[in-house]
Structure formats: C-alpha cells, structure tokens
Simulated scan of single mutants.
Amino acid sequence: MKRLLASMALLFAISSAHASMIWRAVAVDSAQLDGLTKNEELLARTLLATKGDQAINLDKAWHGIHFLLNGTAWKVTSTAGQAVLGGREFGADMGYGPPRVVSKEDVVKVAKALSMITSKELSARYSPKIMEEEDIYPSSTWQQEGPQALKFLLDGYAELLAFYQRAAKNGSMPFRVEFDIR
C-alpha cells in the first residue's frame, strides 16, 4: 500500500506545481471494476493512466461543485449531488478514504439530474462568503477570486456533466478518489 500511495503521489507531484487536493474519476465497466477491487496496483495504474473520455480530473473544483449541487460541505442531499461525493466505498484508503464507485443505475440517474441543472442555477447558489465559512476547499479562494472562481466551478461542472453523460451512455461506472499532494 505504501508503494501504491508513493507512486500516486509522485505522479501527481510531477504534474502539479503546487500542493493541492484533487479529485479524479475514471469510468469502467463491471468486469474492469471487479479486477480493480482485487488489485491495488492495477487500480492505481488505471486511475492515473486512463485519459480521454473515460477520465476526468476536477482538480480543486471538486468541493466547490459539490457545494453548489448540495448546499453543504460534505452531505449528499440530491441525486445530482451524488456526482462528486456519492457512491459506495471499495478497496483500501488511498489518501482521503477508499475509492468510491457509482452503480450503473445511479450513473444514469445522476446524469439525468445533472442535465436538468443550469449554469444560471449554479451561479445563484455561488456564495463566496458562505463557502469560506463552510471551509469549502480551497477555502481562501472564493472571496479572493470571486467571478473567476465561479467560472472555474462552472467549467468543471460542464466537464462533470459530460463525463456522467458518457458513462451513462456507455453503461460505465465511475470510480473516484481524492488525493492530497504535498
């Protein structure tokens, strides 16, 4: 496990100039998921090496998007709200808990729910002051960056929506983890 975490940390450290907590997800089919749950090194390689339409990296936008969808820092309060922090745990802790996977059935529901939320609705939910009070990561960004931070979240949301729509269409199941890179 130490080797797995060290490999993941090294790869992300190389690709990131600043220390940060990031969110990454990969869409896999049932057979792939079964193999990943049994092999931690394969899980790490798949998570880190998968590119293109099967992968998404929300970088630091993950927690802000979760807040815009749920109105809370950590609770999941809606079907669309499952997109970032939903799903069931599997495997060993990879930094901030074990990976989580969203079932095929829930992927379809989440994709549909996300598609019904407009950028205008999300913008209305954006409150830099409340987000900093709630310690939404990265907490010092929201008031300082203002409209630019909102644009960052809306761009991330568009990527998240497209990712879930592709996964629903392909019958895939996203699994995700958060990493803290020092």
Rank of each mutant, 00 (worst) to 15 (best):
R3G: 13
A6L: 09
S7N: 07
S7L: 04
A9F: 13
L10P: 07
L11Y: 12
I14K: 15
S15W: 14
S15T: 12
S15V: 15
S16Y: 10
S16E: 12
A17H: 15
H18S: 13
H18E: 11
A19F: 10
S20I: 11
S20G: 10
S20D: 10
M21F: 11
I22S: 10
R24H: 15
A25W: 10
A25N: 00
A27G: 10
A31I: 14
A31F: 00
D34I: 03
D34G: 02
D34W: 00
L36E: 02
T37H: 01
K38V: 02
E40I: 08
E41D: 05
L43Y: 15
L43V: 11
A44N: 01
R45T: 02
L47Y: 04
T50C: 15
K51I: 02
D53A: 07
Q54S: 15
Q54M: 12
A55S: 15
L58I: 08
K60H: 15
K60V: 15
K60E: 10
K60Y: 15
A61T: 11
W62E: 01
H63A: 12
I65C: 05
F67L: 01
G71N: 05
A73P: 12
K75E: 14
T77E: 04
T77K: 03
Q82G: 04
A83L: 03
V84G: 07
V84D: 05
L85Y: 09
G86V: 07
R88F: 03
E89R: 12
A92L: 09
D93M: 07
D93R: 11
M94C: 02
G95Q: 06
Y96D: 02
G97W: 10
G97E: 11
G97P: 15
P99I: 06
V101R: 01
V102P: 00
K104W: 07
K104I: 06
E105D: 05
E105R: 01
D106C: 00
D106L: 01
V107Q: 09
V108I: 03
K109A: 02
V110I: 12
V110T: 10
K112D: 06
A113Q: 04
L114N: 02
S115K: 07
M116R: 06
M116L: 07
M116Y: 06
I117C: 05
T118A: 08
T118W: 07
K120T: 12
K120V: 11
K120F: 03
S123T: 14
S123M: 05
S127Y: 09
S127C: 12
P128Q: 13
K129W: 08
K129R: 12
E134T: 13
E134D: 14
P138H: 12
P138V: 14
S139A: 11
S140A: 07
S140H: 11
T141R: 15
W142P: 14
Q143Y: 08
Q143N: 14
Q144E: 12
P147I: 13
Q148Y: 13
L150K: 13
L150N: 09
L153T: 11
L153E: 08
L153Y: 09
D155R: 13
D155V: 13
L161P: 04
F163A: 01
F163I: 02
F163L: 00
Y164A: 03
Q165E: 07
R166S: 04
R166K: 06
A167I: 11
A168N: 05
K169A: 06
N170F: 04
S172D: 08
M173I: 07
P174K: 06
F175L: 00
V177Y: 09
V177H: 09
E178A: 04
E178I: 05
D180Q: 01
D180N: 05
I181A: 09
I181C: 07
R182I: 06
R182F: 10
